[in-house]
Structure formats: structure tokens, C-alpha cells
């Protein structure tokens, strides 16, 4: 796992300040920024693309876009929203290129590749594993728009307005997508 040695002052700086510093040529600012968002971005892309290779490709492409656009960045936009917007657009483009979507086998493969945390007790291991498996299956079965909205909410902690900004949809649309995704996941757990 990559470890970054960030200066203490970097930890206090906001994403926007770090991005502006990187736009002025401060590579350490980018390291701090990358450390903060590498995991969430990667998971967002992995949930979106369902395969690691595509996620890796999109992950690197997303950061490349950020690097290229460093001097054009303006702090009016929240960095997280801007970053996920870039990733979302790239993922949409990739999905349009790769249709039809990957089948359940590939989904199962991706799920197996994910790291499974260790559980404390053996009897709960199966239960926890089953629950995570059901959740993973439920996410896989969701339509793309609903899944994206759900992941952005759960993984990245975005609000309705931020999800709407990232996905380019209205807030009511996002809320409706979240409502449907939430209901379907609850139904899957109720089985």
C-alpha cells in the first residue's frame, strides 16, 4: 500500500488550497490531495465499472485530467465534486463504449477480488459474508444511475445537490433514484 509522508500543514489545508498549490507547481500538495481521495475515487470507479482493469484505467485517467487541468482549476467548485464529476463522465463514456454490460460472472469475479475483512467470530463470518454478498449483489443489480447515486451517497458522503452536480441530473431526480435504490436493497435483504 502506498504511503505518503505529508507535512502537518498539508493535513490542515483544504482540498481547494492543495489543488491551487499544485497548480502553482507544488508537487507535495498533489501528494496530499491524492492521499485523501485515492481510495474513495477508486471504489467509486470500481463500483461503477465492476472490473478492476477498467477501474484502474479510469482512475489513472481521472487523475491525469486533474493534473492537466491544474492551472485552470478555480476554487469556486468543491474539489471532491469536481474530481468525481470527471470520474463519472469518464465512466459513462467507458460504459457507452463497452456495452453490453458485463455479465454476472465478471461481477462475481470482481467481488472475489475484493478484499474481505476478517471477522471476529466464525459463526458471524458466514453471516457477515452473506450480508455483504447480498449487498454486493443488490448493488450490481441496480440500474447504473441508481447505483451511481447510491455509491456517491454511501461511499463519498455527497448530498443531494452534490450528487446532482456530479451526475448532471436534478436534485429531485437524484432523490428518486436514491429512493428506488434504497428500496431495492432493502427488499434484497428482506428475502
Amino acid at each position: 500500500m502506498y504511503r505518503l509522508t505529508c507535512r502537518p500543514m498539508r493535513a490542515e489545508s483544504t482540498d481547494e488550497e492543495l489543488m491551487l498549490a499544485y497548480g502553482r507547481g507544488d508537487a507535495h500538495a498533489f501528494e496530499a490531495l491524492y492521499t485523501r481521495h485515492r481510495g474513495t475515487l477508486y471504489r467509486f470507479l470500481l463500483r461503477h465499472c465492476r472490473e478492476r482493469a477498467s477501474a484502474d484505467e479510469l482512475f489513472q485517467e481521472t487523475w491525469s485530467r486533474v493534473i492537466v487541468a491544474r492551472e485552470r482549476y478555480r476554487p469556486e467548485a468543491k474539489f471532491t465534486t469536481w474530481l468525481l464529476q470527471i470520474a463519472h463522465n469518464l465512466a459513462i463514456d467507458l460504459m457507452r463504449r463497452n456495452r453490453p454490460q458485463a455479465g454476472p460472472e465478471e461481477t462475481e469475479l470482481v467481488f472475489r477480488q475484493l478484499d474481505a475483512p476478517e471477522a471476529e467470530r466464525p459463526e458471524r463470518v458466514l453471516s457477515e459474508f452473506e450480508q455483504r454478498r447480498r449487498l454486493q449483489r443488490a448493488l450490481e443489480d441496480l440500474p447504473d444511475e441508481q447505483r451511481n447515486a447510491f455509491v456517491l451517497r454511501m461511499e463519498n458522503g455527497l448530498g443531494l445537490d452534490e450528487i446532482a452536480e456530479v451526475t448532471g441530473a436534478g436534485q429531485e431526480t437524484v432523490k428518486s433514484r436514491l429512493r428506488y435504490a434504497f428500496a431495492k436493497i432493502r427488499a434484497r435483504f428482506a428475502e
Partner: peptide, 13 residues
């Protein structure tokens, strides 16, 4: 649900 989601594999690059 949130707790369960956090227990999903935390994949990283």
C-alpha cells in the same frame, strides 16, 4: 445499511 456498506471490501489502487 451504512454499517454493512462500510464493511464491504475497501478496495484501493
Amino acid at each position: 445499511l451504512a454499517r454493512l456498506y462500510r464493511r464491504l471490501p475497501q478496495s484501493e489502487p
